[in-house]
């Protein structure tokens, strides 16, 4: 902890305050002021310029009747479920690497995991966009190559989805009903290097003797995971779960790049953040965008609160 300090000493050390002033000034200008301004402007009809008109709660009333907005909340909840599922491979990977006996291999695997991080995330996004391309794209090529496409086509004929056809390439990002599946496939095999490294750090604290004891009791590999490994990384899993949910709820970069500013065909990929972006920078309705941002903000704050109350992350 920092030294407690007497009042006289503090007076003599007044120069210390100069150290915090730059950070404080920046934070006030670029974090607190915009936040306050967002609250303020959500009550205005404002196009971003000098003129604005106080309209009270009209923006919020409009938002509550806004089908696109509520549809986008539905989409984002589906995406959150997807992302929860996508946490699983990282956990499996961490446990597998941890159980590998040789230290040298363990280190090699860690390095191999970090290698994909040299690609900027934006570039990864564009590569995936290329994978989804109907004619040149890798995904369709793989499906053709492995024969999964004909399986999909026959499934389509049985169930009448109207999505996959024999002679036409699959339009992953152009068919409304395929947009959510595309967002699910995105990032396969869903291994986050940072996540795996964090889990591995947690696993490292398992002592040798615990495994030996488990062995004597004849505990199988799956039970070992359930009773030995999972409890040790549960803190890290919770933490990344919380960050993931909040991140998904407010993120819209992925949708903006893959699908465009109106959320792709039929607006199926529209998420609340993207709707706010769209309203502000495409439609020019800054006041309404602020109101949408406020609603999203309340949701996230609620989640943070629930998290602090119920899903305590023990330190």
């Amino acid at each position: 902890m920092a030294f407690p300090i007497s009042r006289q000493k503090a007076l003599r050390e007044w120069k210390l305050y100069f150290l915090i002033i730059p950070s404080l000034l920046l934070v006030c200008t670029f974090s607190y002021f915009p936040a306050a301004s967002a609250i303020y402007h959500s009550f205005f009809d404002w196009a971003g310029g000098e003129t604005k008109q106080l309209i009270g709660l009209d923006n919020f009333k409009r938002a509550f009747g806004d089908d696109v907005l509520w549809g986008s909340f539905k989409t984002v909840s589906i995406l959150i479920v997807f992302n929860l599922f996508k946490m699983i491979p990282s956990i499996i990977m961490a446990v597998l690497i941890h159980r590998v006996k040789s230290d040298r291999w363990q280190y090699l695997y860690r390095v191999m995991l970090v290698v994909p991080m040299i690609v900027p995330s934006l570039v990864t996004l564009f590569i995936w966009k290329f994978f989804f391309d109907p004619n040149m794209g890798v995904l369709n090529n793989i499906l053709d190559f492995t024969g999964i496409k004909s399986l999909l086509v026959s499934l389509d004929q049985t169930f009448g989805w109207g999505l996959f056809f024999e002679n036409a390439p699959i339009g992953w990002l152009s068919q409304p009903d395929l947009i959510l599946p595309s967002l699910f496939i995105w990032g396969f095999p869903w291994i986050g290097a940072v996540g795996v490294l964090i889990y591995l750090a947690g696993l490292q604290s398992i002592g040798q003797e615990i495994y030996e004891a488990a062995e004597l009791d004849g505990v199988g590999p799956f039970k070992k995971f359930l009773y030995i490994e999972l409890p040790l990384i549960v803190t890290q899993v919770r933490l990344s779960l919380v960050l993931l949910v909040i991140g998904t709820l407010q993120g819209y970069g992925l949708q903006l790049l893959l699908l465009g500013e109106s959320g792709g065909a039929g607006g199926r990929g529209m998420v609340p953040g993207l709707w706010m972006y769209n309203k502000a920078f495409v439609a020019g309705e800054f006041g309404y965008a602020c109101a949408v941002g406020m609603i999203l903000f309340v949701f996230i704050l609620l989640l943070t609160f629930l998290n602090n109350k119920y899903v305590r992350v023990d330190k």
């Binding site: 407010q250 502000a280 800054f286």
Partner: peptide
């Protein structure tokens, strides 16, 4: 969350 900030930040 930073998401609500981006519009006022722009102005």
């Amino acid at each position: 969350p930073g998401v609500a900030n981006i519009v006022p930040l722009f102005s």
